[in-house]
Each structure stands twice: as structure tokens, then as C-alpha cells.
Nucleic acid binder design. Structure first.
Lengths: 353, 353
DNA sequence: CTGAAAGCGCTAACAT
DNA sequence: ATGTTAGCGCTTTCAG
């Protein structure tokens, strides 16, 4: 790696002049510019961004913390964020916590040590008091994505209207005649699942119904959790007639277990998902889903951060993006009347009290 | 952010002593250690890794370039790499090219400017001469993942036996009586697709068959490409009886189009995929797939890089991980005899010459 | 317009 | 065992 000194020597100028030429400073003579550029080209000089960052006080690097990049939703988010930030001249330092809130916290500290200029995060657990403290120690702008951290209002946020989506979804199920609706949810220590449960409860009580606590299964989304959760629901004495799934990895497990049991969606059971992923859209039958533009979320988050980086004392903003119910066959036409258990074909001895 | 000077002043010692205590230097008195640690705790000091990196000559940061993080395979790869590297004390600078070889090249340069200690990459196009040049300029260790860059032997590589997987898959189809086998492939400028086509050709010619050039459709994997490719194949005067899909985003498009046409897998058409993703395993009927342990690939790549970082003049190594055919219903029992066109239910007027 | 000098925060070499 | 000094590569004063 050639340094600025070598370029300067090779061009017969001072290092500062190289900086000026490369930084498009106003007052540089054409002669100097030409000589410097020639030398730069000759030795293939590229400024060392670490050294420049140290001197300038900023690194043109942004930290991104997500709780699970295997989740296609979060992968899409990271993709959009990275694209937008790269276009604005920022590098992305990625930290992935695999659902572990402890790791999220460590990452906040480690990224701070790496002198990031800003931070975008969608952590596993937004309720941890030490997270609030860690964020308050941050001196750079922060953007929260689909998270609400109580007691920390310094950050901008980009949220999705999960409550609205859950309401449309629930109303749709109620309209289809369902009264026993269950939710296989992600952890309620994060905004999306919390909001969805709120939405479901609102619509149910608005229709004189209520959400049975046995019908709410909440845990970090994994395929295994999905399998076990749907099994538990179907094995209840009075199983639900409709199930909402709030997490993509869990959905995969749910579909596997349903198929193993020979449960046919849209006939034996109504199923809806809160994430419109290919596995849902191309399932047979196609699965009703709540859609949102995840890339748009990422672009907004990145744009918000870039704006804050540009204008130091910009006020934090919260933006809420819409969700949209996409009705497909999985939730239509299920016999949802009393006594109609959503039991699998292999459930010959159903105990009904 | 407190600096080392403030800690030193607060503890009444020299900055160098702070470094020594924090770096667990051998010769430090207990008294000094205690005073320094107290001061560190008091002001909440964390070393600035950028400054330390500049001084030390390394940054404990590794660059990771992938062609498409939306591809679940690559997301899983990044996940495993990030986890392994973080455990070894490295941060990950992520660059995502969205399938654009030009972006890959820029990323190599940009990461170099950010003084990464090492580079792991799975680029879109491994055949570009300027990529070879860019890599040759790298002075840090490089690990290639599922890529072979001709004329560049400095890197370690972690490869999968895609050729072997394709051979098993093709032999399976031939055993099922198929003679007209098509491939919807990713770009052949990357190792996996190239190897798979090689494998298919080898098995076909070993069985006295050959791969019809009209049956090979190769392009960057997108849902749209998948849809159009399968449509083109089915609309051929003599359509294939079996189709292999070599890319996950394309697979989604293929499945969508097949369903639109009412083509039933395992009856009208045999389908196999080279990536065993949930959308394949949970499709009805389940789709035969070539499986590999992508996380293992990522872990190996990271471990390889860490080893090279530890031992400066370690020889580059190439490791090849196995693939495994998982036969499911989508490729079994299709009538594959002469004249049996894999036409959709809506194809009433089939031209057969 | 350009050069010289100082310093970002840290650590390693050299002193003592 | 600890303090002092120098310098990583760059950019930004401050002179001229």
C-alpha cells in the first residue's frame, strides 16, 4: 500500500498538497493538480480510510445490528440498508446476534469502539434496561428499525404498522366465521409481535370475543418452535380453527408439522402469516399474509441516518410504513362452527368435554 | 468517549501503563494494575480500535463480499462466517454486490482502503481479469468461497462438490427413465453452476445421452428469470421431462409459473433443485434437492482465514465439502417415455413433429 | 497557492 | 516496573 508520503515525494510536492488535490480543494493550481494526479496514478495510491478517519474524527462507517440475518425479512432489510449506505459513501459493519440480547449489547459496545459514525439496529430484546444505557452512551445518531426502546428518545425510528396488519387479518378471520383464533408469535420483547397481539386483541374484543391465553405461544422463531407450537395447539382439547404465524422460521416448522399430520389448509384449518415470504405465497394452498415493503423500510432507515449524519442536530423522527393484507386460499372456507376441531386426519380419538 | 490520556491522568500514571494493564503485559505491579483498572471503570474507558489499528498495523476487521445476501444460501453463509469471526475477535465489514461484478470490484478496493486484515469473498463473476488484478494487489489473506479464480493461487478456498451433487441428481433422473433433462442455471461465470453443468454432461454422456443446448438456460437468478425460463422450456416443441434448477430465487419463479400452468410435479414433470431450501422441502409435492451444509462452509472459510491471520506464511489450502442428494416426490414417477410432453394442463394444441 | 508542523488516540521501543 | 518518546497515515491549521 503506497502512502501519501510516497505520492508526495514522487510528485515533488508536500503531502498536504496531495490531500488538497484529492479532496478537490478550491485553491489548487492546474500544474500541481496534474503532477499529483500523475503520481497518484503511477503508484496506484488510495487513501487509507482508517488513518483519515482518525484524523478527521469520522470513519464513514455505519454499524448495523440485526437479531437474525437468517430471517429473510432481516436479510432483505440489511440488503436495502447496505445498498443505500454504500451509495452514500458509507461502509457497513454488520453485527448479528442470533437472537441473543446479550450479543446485541456487546455489539453496541464493539461498534462504538470501532468509531462508527452512526448505528442502525433491530435488536432481539428492546426491553433490556442495559440496552437503554448502552444507547444513551452512544454519541452518534441511532436509527431503530421496528423497535421501540422505552426511555430512549434520541433515536429516529422506522416502524411498520403491524397492529393495523394484525387487525385486518383478524377481522378477515372473524368475517370468515372464526372465533377460536391462535397466534404463534415471536418474542413480545420486540415491537412487531407486541403490536400484532395488540391488534388481534382489539379486533376480537370489538367483536365480543377474546384471545384465549392458551392460544398464544410466544418464543424466538425457529423451525422447531413452529413445529412444537402448532402441535400443541392442535392437541388442545378445544383447538383453534384459525392460526396466525408471526415469524418466518417458525412458519416453516408449522407447515412441516401440518403436512405430517395431513391437515389441509383452507379446509381443516385457516392459516395466516404476518410475513409475506415466497414459502407462503407459493405454498399449496397459497397462504394469506400480511405484506409490507421491507426494502422500503431499509431504505428509509438508511436515508434517515444519512440525513442525521449530514445535519448534526436534526431532530429524531419516527416514520410508520403501512402493511397490507393479502388474502389467499389458506384462510378461506374453513368450517369454523362450534365443535369443528381442526384435528389432523390421524386424530381419531379426540377428547371433547 | 474517554481517551487513554484521561484514564492515565485520572490514575496518575502514564498512558503506556494503561495500555500495558489492559493488554495484560507480564511486568505490571498489582498496585498499578489496581489503580488503572479503577480509573478505567470510573470513566468507562474503551480503547479506540481505529487508533489502535492504525498504530498496530491491523484492524481486527475482515471484509466479506457476497454477490447477493437475499439469496438464503448466502445469508446462511454470511451468518456462519460472522459468528465464527466474531468469536475470534474480528468485526465483519459486509459488501453486497447484488449480482453486479462491477460492484464486487469496487468493494475489493474499498475494503482494502479500510485496512481489513483479511477478505472472504463469493463474487458474482470469478472470470473477470480485473478481479484477478485487484486480488493480486491485496496484501492480506484471501479466502474464496465456492469460487475458482483462474490465475490467482494466493487464496485459500472452500468449495462444495457441486459436480458430484449434479452427477447423483442426473443419475437419479436417468434411472427414473428421463432422457430430456433441462437445467435452469445461475451464471456460468461462477463455480457452482459451471460444475453442475459439467456433472450433468458427464453423466448424460456416460449414459449415451447428451445435453441439448436448448435445454440450458443460464442467467443471474431472479424470480422473473425462473418464471420465464420454465415457460420457455415448457413451450419448446419437444419439452424436457425433467428440469433441474440451480438457484433459489429462480426456483421461486419456477414454482409459481408451474402452478399457474397447472403442471403437477412428480406426474407431468420431474423437478430437482440444487439448493435444499425450505421452499423446496415443504412444497407439495416435496422437491428433490442436492443438499450441502452451508453453515459448515462458512465456518470453514472463517476458520481458514483466522488460521492464515495467525500464521502469516501459511500455505493456501483448498477444501471441498460434500453434497448429498435428497430424493423426494417431485422427481419420482413421471412418465418420461418418448412423446410424453411435459405440457401444462392448458396446453391443448401441442406441436409434435 | 503551497509547504511545514501539529496532532487524532494509541502502542512499541527505548529509556530509567 | 514504569515513564518518555516517537510515529502509524492522514488532514488541518498556520505561515509564507
Amino acid at each position: 500500500m503506497a502512502t501519501i508520503k510516497e505520492v508526495a515525494r514522487s510528485a515533488g510536492v508536500a503531502p498536504a498538497s496531495v490531500t488538497r488535490v484529492l479532496g478537490n480543494h478550491p485553491n489548487v493550481s492546474d500544474a500541481l493538480r496534474a503532477r499529483v494526479l500523475a503520481a497518484v496514478a503511477e503508484v496506484g495510491y488510495k487513501p487509507d480510510l482508517v488513518a483519515a478517519g482518525l484524523r478527521r474524527g469520522y470513519t464513514s462507517t455505519v454499524g448495523v445490528i440485526v437479531s437474525d440475518i437468517l430471517n429473510p425479512m432481516l436479510a432483505e432489510l440489511v440488503d436495502a440498508i447496505e445498498e443505500q449506505l454504500q451509495a452514500s459513501g458509507y461502509g457497513v459493519l454488520l453485527a448479528n446476534s442470533h437472537g441473543d440480547p446479550e450479543r446485541d449489547l456487546e455489539s453496541v459496545g464493539l461498534l462504538r469502539q470501532r468509531r462508527i459514525d452512526g448505528l442502525i439496529l433491530s435488536v432481539a430484546d428492546e426491553t433490556r434496561p442495559d440496552l437503554v444505557r448502552a444507547l444513551q452512551h452512544m454519541t452518534v445518531p441511532v436509527v431503530l428499525v421496528d423497535r421501540e426502546v422505552q426511555g430512549y428518545n434520541e433515536a429516529s425510528s422506522v416502524l411498520c404498522d403491524h397492529r393495523g396488519g394484525a387487525k385486518s387479518m383478524t377481522q378477515h378471520l372473524v368475517d370468515e366465521g372464526h372465533q377460536r383464533i391462535a397466534m404463534i408469535s415471536g418474542p413480545t420483547v420486540a415491537y412487531p409481535s407486541r403490536e400484532r397481539l395488540l391488534g388481534i386483541r382489539q379486533v376480537l374484543s370489538g367483536n365480543g370475543l377474546e384471545l384465549d391465553e392458551d392460544y398464544v405461544l410466544s418464543e424466538r422463531g425457529t423451525e422447531r418452535f413452529g413445529r412444537e407450537a402448532i402441535a400443541r395447539l392442535l392437541d388442545l382439547r378445544i383447538p383453534p380453527t384459525a392460526v396466525a404465524v408471526g415469524n418466518t422460521p417458525a412458519l416453516v416448522g408449522v407447515l412441516g408439522e401440518l403436512r405430517r399430520r395431513g391437515v389441509v389448509l383452507g379446509r381443516d384449518l385457516a392459516l395466516v402469516t404476518c410475513n409475506d415470504v415466497p414459502v407462503a405465497a407459493f405454498h399449496s394452498p397459497a397462504i394469506t399474509a400480511v405484506w409490507r415493503d421491507v426494502s422500503e423500510v431499509g431504505r428509509h432507515a438508511a436515508a434517515q441516518l444519512v440525513a442525521m449524519l449530514g445535519d448534526g442536530k436534526r431532530q429524531p423522527r419516527t416514520i410508520v410504513l403501512p402493511t397490507q393484507l393479502r388474502v389467499r386460499s389458506s384462510s378461506v372456507g374453513v368450517r369454523s362452527g362450534e365443535g369443528q376441531a381442526a384435528s389432523g386426519a390421524d386424530l381419531t380419538a379426540t377428547h371433547v368435554t
